[in-house]
Design a protein around this nucleic acid. Sequence first.
DNA 1: ACATAATGCGAGCTATAGCTCATATTGTCT
DNA 2: AGACAATATGAGCTATAGCTCGCATTATGT
Lengths: 207, 207
Amino acid sequence: MARRPLTNPRKHATQERSRATVDALVEATARILVKEGFDKASTNRIAQKAGVSIGSLYQYYPSKEALVAAVVDRHHQELMQIIRDALAEVAALPLEDAVRRLVTVAIEAHRIDPRLHRVVAEQIPRTGRLENVGAFNQETFALFRAYLERHRDELRAVDLGLAAFVCVTSIEALTHTAVLHRSDILSDEAVDTLVDEATRLVVGYLR
Amino acid sequence: MARRPLTNPRKHATQERSRATVDALVEATARILVKEGFDKASTNRIAQKAGVSIGSLYQYYPSKEALVAAVVDRHHQELMQIIRDALAEVAALPLEDAVRRLVTVAIEAHRIDPRLHRVVAEQIPRTGRLENVGAFNQETFALFRAYLERHRDELRAVDLGLAAFVCVTSIEALTHTAVLHRSDILSDEAVDTLVDEATRLVVGYLR
DNA sequence: ACATAATGCGAGCTATAGCTCATATTGTCT
DNA sequence: AGACAATATGAGCTATAGCTCGCATTATGT
């Protein structure tokens, strides 16, 4: 296996000024990745676009990969928060309502910044953040599983861990693929149909 | 958008000897990608491992990306053939039998060489082969849709194009994710359960 | 105000990746 | 056998990416 470069930030910035620098670097990295692709995202270019010197860049991030990883992590934090909120929101709703809402939220989340989402998905293997993604998914599985446990009376007999895997993976794939490769399915009228179908898929499976 | 390097082969090799050269190059690229990762796959290294001079490499492939694209394409051809065969095989089977068989085949296909499969999945964005993947999926959708048309009497009223999208995307995601990230679900005993669940998901949705 | 720490700077070094081209070898055809 | 095309070779050029380091500037605390 290839040895990966370090991807953790170097210092923890304490002053206001330096936090701004760090933010600018991550933001610039994201913008360049989206607009110009990974290859154009050289450290010099990132520093330039961030309005920061190359020296400062290396004070906070030990490598280009670390910056990309920061972008990936930031995006994942945002997504996880959306998922947590959504699952808290639907905790008491009956199965079908809950699933429908979750599917809708998933589509909305993917639509916030599809280009960044695509880039993040593409860059994950490079960042050595695959394990993090594993953890990320684990949390989602666990949260959804908790919902299922609470609503066990609405379900058929089924291993809840496995069911959570099946449902979450399917919903994620459908929304992800639709947003990134099938914008035709997502016209304002068509979205509702997709939501209906995904809901039916999951609900039909669970009971 | 970033301009991508050319990814098409340069000349078409006619003699026996040169075809061997080309094969060795693609094979070496695949091996290096799997064992050492994209960064270590320099053109010099590929040529060396293929037992071919760097000059010869550039006679057939204009860039490193072209070689990676060749690996991706080759893998996709193989997968598509498996899918075509499987769908031909189940064409006359009733819904549940057909789906169960397809899910099984999908898992088997992913298991042939999981590490290569993972690498290919990771490298697709870099190769500019996303459109090809689109086409690849289009064909799969079309083939499965044809099956659905033939068995319409077993299905509820549903847009077959959309249904094909939902089913194929779900099956692909479940098998892909299970093989790459959840080997626990794929122990010899557990596979059957996964097959059952995936089958139930899809069949329940379709009727 | 001064000392000390935190942050910022950017010219320039090192390494290596991608690639070319002049030349040599091997195959094909008559 | 000779001529022409196809294929193979690898030393070495060019460009640029990643990164360091010595020094300048700005903040903090007393």
